[in-house]
Write a protein that binds this DNA or RNA. Structure first.
Lengths: 188, 188, 188, 188
DNA sequence: TATGAATGAGTATTCATTCAT
DNA sequence: GATGAATGAATACTCATTCAT
């Protein structure tokens, strides 16, 4: 990726998070990135496309962070626990990016197209759940719903941790307890 | 409340949900409500104030709906189950209003002032959790976090139900199962 | 004149002076006068007409003040001196009204019609000058110009007195000196 | 100064003079200047700033015109006479600009800031008066008042000349006579 | 006559996007 | 590619005036 393109994305993340999407003119993004206003449109056809790109970048970073050390062949619980931990870790380390990603997901500013392509990358999670149910490790319920619950509890965990500025031991305990609650709920 | 005021709020809900806040000019709201552009500002000082009013109205409707038949003197589980049921019921019956309320809550378009005054009304829920923990009915954890988890799972439940157009029996089962998962997680 | 009409004029003077013509909505004038917005238009066809009326009222008050004790049969110098004194007296006593009248005169907000009708009342001054020149008491110059100079010096005198908050003795001396300068200039 | 900026100022002068400040929308100024509405705001942050700029430009032109051939080392009377002549010359040659500058000065539309910075440039005139009094050439009176009288008589002279469309000889005589009246009044 | 809610044309200002250099 | 001045449609809000009660 071109250096200027990266700068523009970084500037967008910075300003979107600070001021919101609608209070951040493209001209300010360009200036903050150290390029001319026109230059932005050499890299991103429109503001909408830029927003899509920001979303894709954040989602990618998140995915990459989650996948570090993923125990591909571990037991189901192990794998789920890994995602649980890495997700919260990312959310707590990069609260700005995390919050921006969350906003974007709910904002319908991201094009249908990009939204769906990102969801496709989560197919493996869906399969994992299906398998877990088949194996009797997870209770019998719609996999999509279970996924939803999983994600909802993760969000609650990150929100609480960020809001209360947890760190180190309290954070570790919080993560473990949150997972315990989740796991107890979805296993027979 | 004045008839025109109601029309304006209803038009706002309609259009905000359909098009988003930033794609809905006040002029279109007024026209949709069948009044002149200036009239809107006779009732709401500014667009921001209008948004606040929409939020308050939705929150009130939600609260009213939840409180119908609330078993003030029932056991903890009974009370929580009631809220669980009524919340999902509202979300499924009024998906537009539900989604709008959710968006608004996360959007920071609602003034600090209104946001807080609304949160105050939920104090009773917080007290309920604290009591539950003291009584040993709920596991020992930060009440705020438990509240967060509760709400997160409710959102997941509504989202799944709405997305999949559940009704009648499947819906009843879904609600019951969702509550079961939650309850198993947070009780010893 | 109706009581309400008077209140409206008074309110207009008050607010116009404080905020300017363009920053004073008719609705605020009405409220300040203690009547409904619509009532204003029962007395004054439009805002323009109201402004005309304000101007006429101020001009009338000014005229009345000047004419108190006017030495109809005195010598020219005596009569001019009288006007000199009474004008400054009015300007210093009612600075708000004075400043408003001055603004209005230069603003072209007053209709041509009213402007002219007011000037007509000053015909006597013009005649006085003509007579003075004919009698050789005043130097030979266009009477209109001489009138202009007279008024210009009066304005300078009021402006200086108001700006420097003169009172009593200093004011008396200032008035006398100003007149002296004027008189020395226009007499042979 | 940029070409477009000049056009915008010229258009503003034109329209402000013809229609007044409040009857001249920025959009009409832009169109009259042959640029897009947005362009105006590339050069002037707001309408207020534009008005300030118009005032500064007029004041500068006036100053420049007055200072042409100023007899820096001439006698007091000579210097005052020069200003007298050049001021009236400017007023008669550019009646639109003259009237606009006058309106602006009294309108409190010009920012405090600009108003004061312009007055500072007139300090030399004040010093001149003080010196004249000290030397016994001018009568002993408050210098500020004398300055006021000077300016007031100049305004009267320009007003009369413009109103009566004086030119050439009559104008020359008018200027000379006006100065004579002034000078006779303020010298011992 | 008095009222004040309703009206809607009018206005300053913003900002995504273009394009000549 | 890079630039940034120019563009003009879009938008929140105001306020003189009307008119049904």
């Amino acid at each position: 990726m071109n250096e200027k393109e990266k700068q523009l994305l970084e500037a967008s993340i910075d300003l979107f998070a600070k001021e919101g999407f609608w209070n951040t003119p493209t001209s300010r993004i360009a200036k903050h990135a150290g390029v001319a206003t026109g230059t932005l449109f050499n890299y991103f056809e429109s503001k909408d496309v830029l927003i899509d790109a920001v979303y894709k970048r954040l989602k990618q970073e998140w995915m990459d962070h989650i996948m570090v050390g993923y125990p591909q062949n571990g037991a189901l619980k192990e794998r789920v626990e890994h995602i649980w931990f890495r997700h919260i870790d990312w959310g707590v380390r990069f609260p700005v990016r995390y919050s921006l990603m969350t906003q974007l997901k709910l904002s319908n500013l991201v094009s249908q197209e990009v939204q769906q392509s990102q969801e496709a990358e989560l197919a493996f999670a869906y399969d994992m759940i299906v398998q877990g149910i088949a194996d009797g490790v997870l209770i019998d319920m719609p996999p999509a719903y279970l996924g939803q619950i999983f994600y909802a509890q993760l969000e609650a965990a990150v929100y609480y941790a960020t809001e209360n500025n947890l760190s180190d031991m309290p954070l570790t305990r919080h993560i473990a307890q949150g997972f315990e609650i989740f796991w107890r709920g979805v296993t027979p």
